[in-house]
């Protein structure tokens, strides 16, 4: 019976014309301000990491400060604002980078050292980075607590599966 439901569900999903566009299936990418990237979003999504890695070495070893793919400039346009109208740091799950990286389960350590908000904004101290360094900080453990809470509440997870 379960198998029948599963197959029916899969068929319905595959036949649905909204597959791929459905908000539940894709990460919600926050809107950015400013001019769009000349290469297009698809290029940026595929290559942003290579561009930043290439240009970081140019800046660090050769002192070229006029590079285009600098992580600091990302947040000039890609700054998500909170209720108070202040940019959120990467500790907040609404942060631009996290909207995709959480979805893809790809952790980046850029923000162990780099700031995740526009230059000049005074980050509140409680918005510590994700704490992927040596000491775990509150946001990460809070996140784990949420996951555990979800697992406990979920009726689809049986007692056996949890053990």
């Amino acid at each position: 019976m379960r198998l029948v439901i599963l197959i029916t569900g899969l068929l319905l999903t595959a036949l649905s014309p909204a597959w791929g566009q459905d908000a539940a299936w894709a990460p919600a990418v926050p809107k950015a301000s400013g001019e769009p990237h000349p290469e297009g979003n698809a290029y940026m999504r595929r290559w942003h990491m290579s561009m930043m890695k290439h240009d970081r070495d140019l800046t660090m070893y050769d002192g070229e400060r006029g590079v285009n793919a600098s992580i600091g400039e990302c947040f000039e346009c890609h700054a998500v604002k909170d209720e108070a109208g202040q940019p959120v740091t990467v500790a907040d799950e609404r942060h631009f980078c996290r909207s995709c990286h959480d979805y893809a389960a790809v952790k980046v350590d850029c923000f162990d050292c780099h700031r995740s908000t526009p230059e000049g904004f005074e980050e509140p101290p409680h918005q510590a980075s994700l704490g992927r360094g040596i000491l775990p900080t509150l946001p990460y453990s809070a996140q784990m607590a949420q996951v555990l809470e979800y697992l406990r509440a979920s009726p689809t997870v049986t007692a056996e599966a949890r053990e």
Partner: peptide, 9 residues
């Protein structure tokens, strides 16, 4: 310790 509010440069 973890650092926040770094300078961009």
């Amino acid at each position: 310790e973890p650092v926040t509010n770094q300078k961009t440069h």
